[in-house]
Every structure is written in C-alpha cells, then in structure tokens.
Design a protein around this nucleic acid. Structure first.
Length: 799
RNA sequence: GCCGGGAUGGCGAAAUUGGCAAACGCACGAGACUUAAAAUCUCGCGGUCGCAAGACCUUGUGGGUUCAAGUCCCUCUCCCGGCACCA
C-alpha cells in the first residue's frame, strides 16, 4: 500500500554514489551549467532553511541534467568562524576537531536529502589547502596596495580582550560577558574595496537577472551622493573649513556651520574663548558615547558654540561655528553648513539655540513673508529668493548654476561622496586564516614569501576563553625570523574575517584540488560564470558585494575575463512556523531529520516546493506535508494498476503538462509545476492509466522526488537511471484541440459558454452567436453597439 | 525621510501578462467501503438572496482608462525589507 521510502531512498543514494552520477568534467561539446547554492556554515545539523535552499538548487540541477546540459553542482563548507572557538572553550576540544566532526554530520544530513552534489569537489575553508590561497590572494592585494594597515577606532571588550563587530555590541555592552564596550584605536588590516566603488555601482546594471531589491540594497549600501564641497574661511585665522552639501541651492540661507566634535580644527577654534572649558567638556561627553547610542535618531541633538565665526563665501556674511553631536566625522568632511529654513534638523537646532534663519527658496503654492510663520523647514523645490544673482531661478536650475559659479570663483568644488567604507578584515581570533605578514623591528611590515605559504594555524593553541587571541600565546607561531634580514621578528596574530573565505569559493569549486594557484584558469574559463546562484536574502549586501569585488580584482590581475560572477540570482524566502522565523529561543523549530524519518526526503522536497513559490516566505504546515506524502502514495498506486492502453485525451493532457512544467521549471515556479503534475495525475487516475503518459510524468517529477521516481522508472522496466531518460518534448500537434470553449459575454458579463469546432470561421461564429436564443434575455431587441471577438477565447457583445 | 517589495476564500496559493477570479493543495462538510476506526474513493466547499433554475456582489481604500481591470494610471491606508542624525 505505502511505498517504502526508507529502503528506496537509501538504495538510490548508494546507486548515485557508485555510478558517480553527478561528477562533472569539462565537456567542450556540451553546454555547461554551473549551479551553485550558498555553502553552509557547518553547524552539524541542517535546518529547514538549508532544506529549502538546497532543494530548489537540486531540482534546477536535475532538470538541467535531463535537458542535456553538462551540470556542475558543487558543495562545501564555510568552516571558519567563532562558534568553533566557543565550542572549544566549552567542551575542552579543539576548533579543528569540532569543525570536522560537524562537517561529517552535515555531509550525512545533506546526503539523506538526496542532493545531486559532486562530492569530489567538496572544499572546506578551514583546510590549509584552501586558506593557503586566501593568503596568496591577500599578498597579491598587498602588492597592489589593495590591502593596507591603519589605526582606527574599534569596539573593544576589556574583559574578553578582543574586538567586537558592531553587531556584537548589545546595549553598549559585550554580547558575551556584558562588560562595557570601549572605543579603542587599533592597527587593523583593511581591503581597499572603495577603489572599486564606481565599478561596483556601475556594473549593477549588468545584473538584470538579479532580484531588483538586492540590486537596490547594494546601491543603498554603496551610497553615491553628489553635491558640492564649500570652503568657509575662518574669521581671524588663515584656516578654512570645508563643508559638504547636496543642497547647494540653499547656500544663501546658511546661517551657521556645525563641526563634528572630533573635527581636527576644533581645539584651535575654542582656544582662549570664554566657552573653552564648556566646549571641552562637551567634546569629552560625546567621545564617551558609543556610536550606536549616538546614531539613534530619537536622542535630542546637543551642541555648543565654539566662540569662533566663519565667512559664508557666497555673501561674505559672518556665521557662527558650532559643535554638535549629530555631525559625524566619518561622513562628508565632518562639517556641515546649516540652513534652518530648508532642513528640518537644522530648523529644530536653530530654534533650540536661537540661531538666525533666512528663506531662500519659496514654495510654489505659497509665499512665505516672515520667518515667524515657519513651523517647520521647507525641504522641497521652489523658486530662489535672497540668493543674489540667482533670484528667480528654479531651485533645480540653481543647484547646477550655483555649483558651476562656485567652481569658477574657487569657493567650492563639485564632489561625490560615498557611503561605502573600506573593508576591515582583521579579527583577533584563532579560527580563521592567519594574515600572512611578519613584523620586523628593522624591516617593518614584511609579507610572508609565497614559497612559505600556507601559514598554518598551530594545532596546540590554548583555549581558555581568557586573555585574548589564543594565537598570541603560541610562541613558536609568533616568534619567527624576518624573511628579509633573518633577524628576530614577530608574526601577525590577527586572522581574516570569514567573509574573505567566501568571496571566491565559487572559483575554487572549478578546480578544487589545483596546486598552482587559487584556481585553474582553464577550468574557470569553461565553468564560470555561475549560471544560477541561490541563497538567503541575508547575504544580499556583504557576501555578494565582496564576491563581486574579488571577481573584479581577479579580472584586473588577468586571471579571468568577466566582470560579474553570478549571472542569475535567486533569493529564497524564509521558512516560518506560526508566522515566525524558526529559532531555538522561540522553540518553534521543525527538525528536517524527523520529517525525513517520518515521510522520507522526497515528501519533504515535494512539500517545500509546493507550499509557496521560492522567493516568498513559506509557512510550515505538518498537514501540508502529509498531503504531499498522500500524493506520492497515489502515484505509487497508479503504477500498481497500470494498463497498457492509449487514451488520446490523456495524451493531449500530457503534452499540455509538459509544456507548462518545462516553462515553470525554467522560471523556478515549482509550485505551479507540481500543481499541473497533480492535475495530470488525477487525469491518469480517471482514465484507468496509460503507461506512456505515466512514464513521462515520472520523468518530469524526478527532479523533485528523485528516489521515488528512480524506483518507479526501474519498475516500469527501464534500464539505467531516470537521469538519462531525457526531458520529454512537447509535440505541438498534440496541443491542437479539435473543439474550443468560447466564453460569451454581454456587456462584459459572462452569459454563456459554447463549444465550437476549432477551425470555425470568425464570421460563422459571429452569426451563430448572434442567432443563439439563449442570449435573447440579455440582448433583447437592443442594437448591438460593439462586437468584440478574441480569437479562440471570448466574445463580448456590447448592446 | 529616501529606496525596494507586497496586500486575492477559513489557510498556503493560482490566474496564459488586459479576456471565465479562486487552478492545485490544506482544512472543513456529506456520502461509499468497514462490525468500527484508519486508509482509500465520490461529491460539495468566496459571500448574499433563493426549495431550485438562477440573480447580484467579491482581489486593502477611493477614483480613472477600456468593450473588458486582480493585472494599466492616479489617491490614500496598512504590512515587510534595506539605508539613514548622510549634510
């Protein structure tokens, strides 16, 4: 009665492995297809998110195999990262052992799902055969000035003695020990991703097969903004303060300027002024605040007068110079011109501190006579007033004219600012790729010579959870000879952020065992670019941006000849339970393993694809899963009662289904593909079966439920795997119906449906319809005003 | 605030891109088989009125274009995501 999924699934997983069914090799005569899903962090257990991500990929892969493509579908592990270190501390083990154990468990779980991976290409980023090439890439970047070291303020936990990422600071404290996080200046390694900002932005246009929202998220992140840098001379000083604005049309309304408290000119500005002490106190107070607190917009803007004045270069007006916590040193020039009448934040600040205002843009619909009428700033467009020679221009025109005028007079410069910052890659942690440099007291920063790579992680580092990076405590790792002068030197103990590892793994998959470089250029020339990439939306910005950056770098050093790594991108939606994301803390996790035991992998795969289209959120439903299982049992039962008889109506239904399923698979609309296969199944059921039609159904279902279909394929008497069956083709003759159902509307309302021969002439059809007595109640004797005929579909009679 | 996405039965969702709204499934109801249950099979299942045939209404709101709008245009409401004291 029930099909024996446990036996069947094991059997076919073994068969595929034995036959190396998914082993990909270059085949110049076949079209290649590189299908990639974002590789997982090896936590040891897969969750429903993985199941969904990898099932979508697997169906695409198997479909392309059936269509005759040479498919590469690799899998590996993003294996460096903090959880391994935490586990080492907690369980008195080593990150290395813990990670490898997790990888083995994870491989097992993935194999139980029956995914079509080429396991011979498996890579783990924590293996030195992989991270050696991280170090190689780093050195290449160092040579080109793309990797550099600089001091910067970072979040520092004094208790754990390590830096924290912004995401690891919770309410101003360390996420692990709650100690108050400090700002500390540290020398850190950066990658100069900003050198690629123009191309990273520009090339987004090539990505027409990416979801719009991912493209727009990257655009936001890169954050190009065009404006003008304006030079304000200080009164009683030779110094100049530069401010940046995107609203140069409001320059004549600038009534004060504001500096960030960290601005380098501040000390000089307040020196000897009555406000000096109060200002110093204010600067100190702001410095104490963490960035997170300072950036929260509901906190009241605070500020203080410096005692100094500057000169507005467009009208030589003296304006006071203030300090305020809402101006950030990191953005623009660290100084702004304030226009209270046309910027709401400046408006509130000016009201609070009694600063001057002047209207310079009149809204179209009303005329502001006096400042006192203003209850808020007008930030829209309008006509220039109080703006010297620019009066009367529209603000859009003025923006261009004023900028050009300022450039000519040398009081401003048209400029572009970017949000994108250089990428901080140093981590004070053990479980990552050692940054391959050596510090020599004589020679300074010395790169590790290529021949000495990889710099391997020492196996015997102590994991106590205290005293910072365990690497620093391994003497024979730290104490080295300088490669240049052979004198005593110290090795870098920082490791790379794990995003480095995942920024090029898709290239490594093309030649995972290559020994002479990060990848074999012959292999990448054949396999790249990735035809379809599939993964979570959470990687929409960082991972995808970094991968694009690395790709452009490899192109620049002549190793590849394309600009973008991922041709098509699909971001799958999350799996929810009771409307919420599954999480341990909410206790609403559904374990895929238990579902596999209960219903089998094929049922799980079927349900997860049927329940929702891939991009939308999916609500988990135990009964829906059962329903999918019932469907498979139903198909199985049909097989038991198969008769060898041909049914022409069924054959037509088959070809309609082939057409629909083929289209849907190409567009990743698996839910509707399954729906139409269910319809066909119901039709076969009604017709007491047809072996040929049934066989084709099995081929079409096989990418989704591969074990189940392999077994049926064999039972049907076929030799070899269903993977070799070839995708069924649509016979266009079979799509032609001999009769059609035409919908008849009167005044847009459906009144009748009629069956007509497919080849009926339009004039004949029209005559027939108008003569039809069943329509008389609607038409009566009213004259026909309009007769619309949509061929083969519909007629609308307007009376 | 700016940018992007979205809103369709009790639920998940379909709708050939302007042409029969609700395919497919879940849940539910009735029946068949069974001593009974499970499984399976058959039928019903947006709303209102009606014994029925059927009629009218229905895709977040209000308007528009059109012979015809879930789909196109404008207005508003709400939800999700990204960026943001960003100058």
């Amino acid at each position: 009665m029930y099909y024996e999924f446990r036996k069947i699934e094991k059997k076919w997983q073994r068969n595929w492995q034995k036959a190396k069914s998914f082993c990909a090799r270059i085949a110049p005569d076949k079209k290649k297809y590189y299908l990639l899903e974002m590789f997982p962090y090896p936590s040891g257990k897969i969750h429903m998110g993985h199941v969904r991500n990898y099932t979508i990929g697997d169906v695409a892969s198997r479909f392309k195999i059936l269509e005759g493509y040479n498919v590469m579908h690799p899998m590996g592990f993003d294996a460096f990262g903090q959880p391994a270190e935490n586990a080492a501390i907690k369980n008195k083990t080593k990150p290395d052992a813990w990670t490898h154990k997790c990888i083995r468990e994870m491989e097992n779980e993935l194999k139980k799902m029956g995914f079509s991976y080429d396991w011979e290409r498996e890579v783990s980023t924590c293996d030195s055969s992989y991270y050696k090439w991280n170090q190689w890439i780093f050195l290449k970047m160092l040579e080109r000035g793309l990797a550099y070291k600089k001091a910067s303020a970072v979040n520092w936990c004094p208790n754990c003695a390590t830096t924290l990422a912004n995401e690891e600071v919770v309410d101003g404290g360390c996420w692990r020990c709650q100690a108050k996080v400090e700002q500390k200046d540290l020398e850190q390694w950066y990658l100069n991703i900003t050198e690629y900002k123009e191309r990273l932005l520009e090339d987004l246009r090539q990505l027409s097969n990416w979801p719009e929202r991912v493209v727009s998220m990257q655009e936001n992140w890169i954050g190009k903004s065009q404006g003008v840098e304006i030079y304000f001379k200080l009164k009683d000083s030779k110094r100049t303060i530069s401010v940046f604005t995107t609203r140069v049309d409001t320059i004549f309304g600038a009534t004060y300027i504001v500096l960030a408290p960290e601005h380098p000119l501040v000390k000089e500005l307040i020196k000897g002024k009555p406000q000096e002490n109060a200002a110093l106190k204010f600067i100190d107070k702001v410095a104490q605040e963490s960035k997170v607190v300072r950036a929260s917009s509901d906190v009241k803007k605070e500020g203080i007068f410096t005692g100094s004045f500057a000169v507005n270069p467009v009208n030589n007006e003296e304006v006071p110079v203030w300090l305020a916590d809402y101006v950030l040193m990191e953005y623009g020039t660290g100084a702004i011109m304030a226009v209270p009448t046309h910027d709401q934040r400046d408006f509130l600040f000016a009201k609070e501190h009694g600063l001057g205002m002047r209207v310079v843009i009149q809204p179209k619909e009303k005329n502001v006579q006096s400042i006192d009428e203003l209850t808020e700033a007008y930030e829209g467009e309008g006509r220039q007033v109080n703006s010297g020679e620019f009066d009367g221009l529209s603000s859009q025109e003025a923006k261009i004219k004023i900028a050009e005028w300022m450039e000519r007079k040398g009081i401003g410069k048209i400029q572009t600012h970017w949000r994108l910052r250089d990428w901080l890659i140093s981590r004070q942690r053990y479980w990552g790729t050692p940054i391959p440099v050596i510090y020599c007291p004589k020679c300074g920063v010395v790169p590790v010579p290529y021949k000495d790579l990889p710099v391997e992680l020492p196996k015997d580092a102590p994991f106590t959870g205290e005293g910072g990076n365990p690497l620093g405590k391994v003497k024979k790792f730290v104490e080295v000879k300088c490669p240049k002068c052979k004198g005593l030197a110290r090795r870098e103990t920082d490791t790379m952020a794990t995003f480095f590892d995942s920024s090029w793994y898709f290239l490594r998959f093309c030649s995972p065992k290559f020994k002479n470089g990060p990848f074999d250029e012959k292999e990448t020339a054949y396999w790249m670019t990735v035809d379809q990439y599939i993964g979570g939306i959470e990687h929409a910005i960082l991972h995808l941006l970094y991968s694009r950056f690395f790709t452009k770098f490899f192109k620049d050093i002549g190793m590849i000849n394309f600009d973008e790594p991922f041709n098509r991108l699909l971001t799958q939606g999350m799996v929810l339970k009771d409307g919420e994301v599954m999480s341990k803390s909410k206790g609403n996790i559904v374990d895929p393993d238990i579902m596999i035991q209960k219903y089998g992998a094929d049922t799980l795969r079927l349900f997860i694809l049927f329940a929702a289209p891939p991009e939308t959120e999916l609500e988990w439903d135990d009964r829906g899963l059962e329903g999918s299982h019932k469907f498979l049992n139903r198909v199985w039962r049909i097989q038991e009662n198969l008769k060898d008889k041909a049914d022409p109506a069924l054959a037509r239904a088959l070809h309609k289904t082939i057409k629909k399923v083929t289209q849907d698979f190409r567009e990743f609309k698996f839910n509707t593909a399954i729906a139409s296969m269910m319809e066909l199944t119901n039709a076969i059921y009604q017709s007491a079966a047809d072996k040929d039609v049934f066989s084709k159904l099995i081929i079409m279902l096989s990418p989704i439920c591969p074990h189940f279909c392999e077994e049926l394929w064999q039972i049907l008497g076929n030799k070899g795997s269903v993977l070799k069956a070839g995708w069924p083709e649509v016979d266009p003759h079979m799509l032609v119906e001999d009769s059609l159902t035409i919908v008849i509307q009167v005044n847009g309302k459906v009144r009748l449906k009629i069956e007509v021969p497919a080849e009926i002439a339009e004039s004949q059809l029209k005559e027939m319809v108008l003569a039809d007595a069943r329509l008389t109640p609607w038409i009566q004797n009213k004259p026909v005003k309009n007769f619309i005929l949509v061929p083969k579909k519909l007629i609308n009679i307007v009376v």
